[in-house]
Design a protein around this nucleic acid. Structure first.
Lengths: 225, 225
DNA sequence: GCATATTTGTCCGTATGTATA
DNA sequence: CTATACATACGGACAAATATG
């Protein structure tokens, strides 16, 4: 890639993280952006040469990302960018319903996380104007990360981070990203309105429908491919 | 430890798992059994010598267990068996309430997982007769793992596995394990009865009280130490 | 089906950096 | 401040498995 090692360059700037962590960040970024699409094999030799890091370091980064469910490891065959099955998608939405619906249902007044949700829809509006569908998807995920954060639980936050990262893999496997993101910006705004009003049950009703619709849309798209 | 490498011996038997996985299993076992108590540093050199495996292999196993939250990794200091804070305990119970209560509330008839719960209370009865408190704790966790499994979600199963493993760390830091396990066997039976009757809301009511009591008991014990 | 090249799995030795006594 | 112990990162070696022609 660059003339010098990207990892080494970053290390000189931000000193507190290990090489493995930085390397994992770079690879995660590439997966999330779609540079490494689902199903692609990540050959050790290639990446070692291009990023100028040692094999052992790379393998540790692989292991990190495997535990984040972004990669799968096949013994003696190597690592591949995860390809989600329909069952995976259904399960991801099962968890989202569990976490997000409970979070809004037990709402009590306007929560501080509503600020993050406002920021997310604002970012969504901007992305919409730019017709930047990837950014719209990112804004969407920021919104629902904030919804999960209503639980006030670090473990739930981590769970949601992982679940939403998996969902990104789904979006990369599909054409016409606009169809999968655009309709939901308005619906996030409706959910936000209910949350700001402290109407947990109303927000839950909207959210259930949102998640069911989104899930069905993706599952349908999967069947036709 | 053994005269020969335990890991190598295991590999000869079960061939399909990698050395790292087997090594992680051994270490996980030691942590769960309390051989490596919370707070203990796991020095690379020691384990490498005793188990006759290489540093890189061990480091990969460490990385696995760190992501399971059984170990914590401090940069340039090494890995330690996790010590849960009171906040961790509270968060673990927050997640348990979220998962377990939702699972029983949305119950519809007698679920197949009730068989696993029956097996768990049976194992609990046996452990009780033997006054084997560790086994009683294990049976208890089996029960609640089965409760979580009502969600029919692999991701929730994995979440519960992790949460309950963290809880084991708590038990190892405390004296008098009997007090923390014995009272709950009967309560599991009550919860099971409600579940077998298909009474989701009744089971939820019992479960909420169960989890609150258990949480308070642990938090109290933490304050006095 | 076979022989070969490539890739992965495992392990080692070493140089360097970091924390702690 | 120095010494020690340990973790980090690297590159190389070899065996084993897989992919290729």
């Amino acid at each position: 890639m660059g003339p010098d090692s990207e990892v080494a360059a970053d290390r000189r700037l931000l000193d507190r993280a290990s090489t493995v962590e930085l390397l994992a960040d770079i690879l995660r970024e590439r997966i999330i952006k779609g540079d490494y699409p689902p199903g692609k094999q990540l050959a050790e030799g290639e990446i070692v040469k291009s990023l100028k890091i040692s094999r052992n370091t790379l393998r540790e980064a692989f292991r990190l990302l495997t535990h984040e469910r972004l990669l799968v490891h096949e013994l003696n065959r190597g690592v591949f960018v995860r390809v989600l099955t329909v069952e995976d998608v259904v399960d991801v939405y099962r968890v989202r319903k569990l976490v997000e619906c409970t979070a809004v249902r037990t709402l009590d007044g306007r929560p501080p996380q509503a600020d993050d949700m406002v920021a997310a829809v604002t970012a969504g509006d901007l992305a919409m104007r730019k017709q930047d569908w990837r950014a719209l998807g990112t804004a969407n995920m920021m919104f629902h990360q904030a919804v999960g954060a209503l639980s006030n639980s670090p473990r739930v936050d981590e769970l949601m981070r992982g679940i939403l990262a998996e969902l990104r893999l789904v979006f990369h496997t599909m054409k016409d990203p606009r169809r999968f993101h655009e309709p939901y910006l308005e619906r996030n705004k409706e959910i936000l309105a209910a949350i700001e009003a402290g109407d947990g049950h109303g927000a839950e009703r909207l959210l259930i429908k949102y998640l069911d619709d989104s899930e069905h849309q993706i599952v349908e798209a999967y069947r036709n491919s």
